[in-house]
Amino acid sequence: MSKTNFWNDLGWGVGPILLGLVLTTLALMAVGADPARAYATMWTGAFGAPEKFSNVVDAWVPLVLGSVGLLITFTAGLWNIGIEGQMVMGAIGAAWVARTVDLPAPVLVPLLLVAGALGGALWALLAGALKVYGRVHEIFGGLGLNFVAMGLALYLIIGPWKRAGIASTSGTEPFPPAAWLPNWPGLSVGPIEIALALVSLALVYLALRGTLWGLQLKAIGKNARAAFWLGVPTQRHWLGAFALCGAFAGLAGAEQAAGVWARLIPSISGGYGYLSILVVLLSGFQAGGVPFVAFFFAAVTKGSVALPLDLQIDSALGGVLQGMIVLLYVLSQGVRAKFR
């Protein structure tokens, strides 16, 4: 890539972020809030103390795992909207293991992560099968399955898995300590989560780039008919892409259940699935951008939690900022393509 190209790409990437900040600032001024204080609050909310920063990492892990999975499905030309439900099913799988299996932590934790990955993969395969065999577009199939998964989680929480004596939507009984992901003292994150995210990212990056499978997936995503003509088994690869993406999503769900909440709660996926879609869009569908964009999103999400407490501004401001930036980025890409 030449130097001018690099600066060009950077400008087209950074411009929308700056513009998004400007527009969000205008919105803040319109409602009579002090933008400088709002941003300062968000900053300290995300980076003000080690515990706060560890909360950001808590959000970063599922965002990276989800985005890694979505890189696979997007490469295959699939819109896996069902990722949110796949995270929920991952959490349910992990919760099931945590509740029923009584083993020491070194065995139980890996087992529970595998169960989470499996849960997400099977749920994603359902969306894939609906597409391949039932001709249901994956966006509709995935969306429907999301509601089913969330319903299932809620049913388990207030039904079969309810806390002794009381049925509460606040969640199930906490998992036994052997099923908790180990955290660093005083913080809410530990080495396992971070390693999972980074290893997954590296693996998928290498697989998409250097393997025949990655190339075949790319061909299917760009032109499935031609890929089939060339001898690529398109249906198998579609199902495989769904299953893999679901596995990463399920891993994220399991990590949330065992690493953050230590139980199953109704909104265990926390919107990280949908947010991952935005992360991948803003990364230009490239693995290289994912950890950074995910970090930015995680910081905004966690940083804005402090807004209502300190400034009486709703924490939805973070979502406004994220949505604005993605929208402007996609718009800038469109404009750029038009005038190229």
Partner: peptide
Amino acid sequence: GLVAGLNLTEHFILARRTREWLV
């Protein structure tokens, strides 16, 4: 037949139908 966005090398790899894992 052809996949717009892929180059000739990539097409020849796809068409060879090898079983090798890494390209």
